[in-house]
């Protein structure tokens, strides 16, 4: 195994490491109790939170603090840890052009109460990114003005990137066609 990969396996998450980035320190200073894990992966910090409620406040602080200015939303997506509790994670990637660094924020989303905070009030780009995450995982982003599907057809009833959705789909093309016809007939009646 090469040096680089063995270094990766030898790395252990140091939650109280003194070399934490300014952004992580800023989050710890005010929301220390909510931080579950802060881990570095080659210059990029990832902060996992215990609960999702403070996310909007944290993002507001990261954007407005003059020494940080994480004012560019790169990505909003989700992960499915099928079989674990809580099942989903919502992932927000923010960027500070001033510090030239990215920051990953993760919040837990349980399946039975499937919502995550929306960043649409802050970033326009979160609109489509969150709609895609909703489309693929079924996570509702609370505060989003238009929470509808974006890539899959509106009549689709599943969320394809969930781990329990089979690769080949739930229906054959024939069944899918019949389902659409039956649905149209129901609507007519």
């Amino acid at each position: 195994m090469s040096e680089s990969t063995s270094a990766a396996t030898g790395e252990s998450p140091q939650s109280e490491s003194p070399t934490e980035s300014a952004a992580v320190q800023a989050i710890r200073a005010r929301w220390g109790a909510d931080v579950d894990l802060a881990e570095e992966n080659r210059g990029q910090w990832r902060v996992e939170l215990r609960r999702r409620e403070p996310l909007n406040d944290i993002v507001d602080h990261l954007v407005e603090e003059p020494s940080l200015r994480f004012d560019f939303c790169v990505d909003v997506t989700a992960l499915d840890h099928y079989g674990e509790e809580p099942r989903f994670r919502a992932v927000y990637v923010l960027r500070s052009m001033q510090l030239r660094e990215d920051l990953v924020l993760k919040v837990p989303v349980p399946e039975e109460d499937c919502w995550a905070p929306s960043l649409t009030g802050r970033f326009r780009t979160a609109d489509w990114l969150e709609r895609e995450a909703y489309d693929m995982f079924g996570i509702t982003f609370r505060g989003h003005p238009n929470m509808i599907r974006i890539l899959m057809p509106d009549i689709f009833e599943d969320h394809p990137l969930r781990k329990d959705f089979p690769m080949e789909g739930r229906m054959t093309d024939q069944e899918w066609a019949e389902w659409i016809i039956a649905r149209a007939q129901r609507e007519e009646a």
Binding site: T9, N41, R46, V74, D75, T77, V93, D102, V104
Partner: peptide, 19 residues
């Protein structure tokens, strides 16, 4: 080995990012 990271790549159209 297990791990996760966001990586941004400057593609001709813009940033092609991978999580």
């Amino acid at each position: 080995p297990p791990g996760e990271r966001y990586f941004g790549f400057e593609n001709p159209k813009g940033e092609l990012g991978f999580y």
